[in-house]
Simulated assay, not measured.
Amino acid sequence: MGGAAAPAAPGHGSPSRRSNGVPRMLSPRRAGRAALSTAVAVSALAGGLALGTGSATAAAPTITSVAPHLVAALTANQIITVTGTGFSEDVIADVSVTGCTTDPVYIVSSPTSLLLKTAADCAAGTNAVVTLKDDQGATLVASTPNSATATVAAAHKLNFVAAPTISAKATTHPVIQANTSAHAQSEQVITAPVGGGTTVKVTAGSTPFVNTTATPLAATLGGVPLTGIVMASGGASFTGKVGPHAAGAVALSVTSGGVTKTFSVADTDFSYAGNTITVTPAFGPSNGGNDIKIAGTGFTAGSTVTVCGTAATVKAGTTATAMTVTVPKSATTAVDGPCTVKVTTGTVSSVVTPGSTYTYVAQG
Rank of each mutant, 00 (worst) to 15 (best):
His183Leu: 02
Gly248His: 10
Val230Asn: 05
Val202Ser: 07
Lys261Arg: 14
Ala138Lys: 15
Ser256Asn: 10
Thr332Trp: 03
Thr318Ala: 09
Pro225His: 03
Thr321Gly: 13
Glu89Tyr: 07
Phe87Ala: 14
Thr333Cys: 07
Pro15Asn: 11
Ile63Asp: 13
Thr62Lys: 09
Leu221Asp: 02
Ile92Ala: 01
Asp291Asn: 15
Gln188Leu: 01
Gly13Ser: 06
Val200Gln: 11
Lys315Trp: 00
Thr268Cys: 05
Gln78Gly: 10
Gly298Pro: 05
Glu89Thr: 06
Thr75Gly: 05
Leu158Lys: 06
Thr280Phe: 04
His12Lys: 11
Pro15Ser: 12
Ala334Gln: 13
Phe238Val: 00
Val361Asp: 10
Thr53Ile: 10
Leu74Gln: 09
Ala46Glu: 08
Asn20Tyr: 05
Pro164Asp: 07
Ser43Leu: 09
Val279Pro: 04
Thr81Cys: 04
Ala56Pro: 11
Thr131Val: 04
Thr332Ala: 15
Ile107Ser: 12
Ile294Leu: 13
Val224Trp: 04
Ala59Ser: 09
His245Phe: 01
Gly288Ile: 09
Gly243Asn: 01
Tyr272Gly: 04
Asn211Cys: 11
Ala334Val: 14
Gln363Ile: 02
Ala119Arg: 07
Gly11Trp: 04
Ala312Met: 12
Gly32Asn: 08
Ser55Ala: 14
Ala249Asn: 14
Gly32Tyr: 06
Thr102Phe: 04
Val161Lys: 09
Thr207Glu: 14
Thr326Arg: 14
Thr149Arg: 04
Ser330Cys: 15
Ala246Cys: 02
Thr306Ser: 13
Ser14Asp: 09
Leu36Met: 14
Lys293Met: 11
Ile63Glu: 07
Val141Arg: 14
Val265Lys: 06
Thr324Val: 15
Ala73Arg: 01
Val265Met: 08
Ala150Leu: 01
Cys339Met: 15
Asn275Gln: 02
Val130Cys: 05
Val175His: 01
Thr101Leu: 12
Leu217Glu: 01
Val341Tyr: 09
Pro111Thr: 14
Gly284Ser: 05
Thr227Tyr: 02
Gly289His: 11
Ala162Asn: 13
Leu140Asp: 14
Gly195Ser: 15
Thr38Val: 07
Pro285Asn: 03
Thr321Gln: 14
Gln185Tyr: 00
Leu49Tyr: 05
Thr353Ile: 06
Glu187Arg: 06
Ala178Leu: 00
Pro354Gly: 09
Val305Phe: 08
Ala219Val: 01
Gly284Thr: 10
Gly309Cys: 09
Val95Arg: 00
Gly13Ala: 08
Asn127Leu: 05
Thr118Ile: 01
Met25Gly: 00
Gly222Cys: 02
Lys157Pro: 01
Leu74Asp: 06
Thr62Arg: 07
Thr215Pro: 00
Thr98Tyr: 00
Gly48Ile: 12
Ala312Cys: 03
Ser96Gly: 09
Ser88Ala: 12
Ala46Leu: 09
Ser233Gly: 13
Val352Gln: 15
Ser303Pro: 10
His183Met: 03
Gly243Ala: 05
